[in-house]
Design a protein around this nucleic acid. Structure first.
Lengths: 96, 96
DNA sequence: TCTATAATTCTAAACATATCGAACTAAAAG
DNA sequence: CTTTTAGTTCGATATGTTTAGAATTATAGA
């Protein structure tokens, strides 16, 4: 187990933790279905969670590298980072 | 969000939780490298964790459907369930 | 049968995560 | 300048995860 692998695993662990929650899976699914960026509020509307909890989930996804966020006036817009999914899910076992 | 999706997400969450740990990623990597089943003891030797902790990690992987276990005499042998990886990692976003 | 080996289960602890409401920040609208 | 809107941060709490050591189970061998 070399040092590079330890670092890579930290990233993988953070990604898998981010994915290991039903609310966050749903956020990803909604963004995938839309195929484009969406406002945080619009995504959160269907989520039966407090705004602080929803904000926490967006942060978790962003810090894991699974989304990016852009501010426009008072709103924030989120989109999926397809590059991250590509990198960590395509041929997962071989790339591990 | 239909009922089938809720059930599917439970499975996904369990799989991602199982993958969100460096020791378990290492177990999977060792099995992938071997390309065949391995004894629990042999895998555990390089893991700097107590035997009870290692047993817990094997259980976590098995219960998530990522491995199967076979007993032979006093030993147990573990192997990867490639079908599960195939199902949940190939085209992850589309299948979500 | 007694002992050694391989692994699991139990118990307790230390640590991490998910959740909410309240307080806060930033920006538009009045 | 005050109010409204959109989202974040803080503090507290409940729940879940990881870990080790001790006790336990299962099996092989002397």
């Amino acid at each position: 187990m070399n040092i590079k692998q330890l670092k890579d695993d930290e990233v993988r662990v953070q990604i898998f933790k981010a994915l290991a929650d039903p609310a966050r899976l749903e956020i990803i699914r909604v963004l995938r279905d839309k195929g484009d960026e969406m406002g945080c509020g619009e995504i959160g509307e269907n989520l039966a969670l407090s705004k602080s909890t929803i904000s926490y989930h967006f942060k978790t996804l962003r810090e894991a590298g699974l989304t990016t966020t852009r501010r426009e006036a008072r709103e924030k817009f989120v989109k999926l980072r397809y590059d991250t999914f590509e990198q960590y899910f395509t041929n997962f076992l071989d790339s591990l």
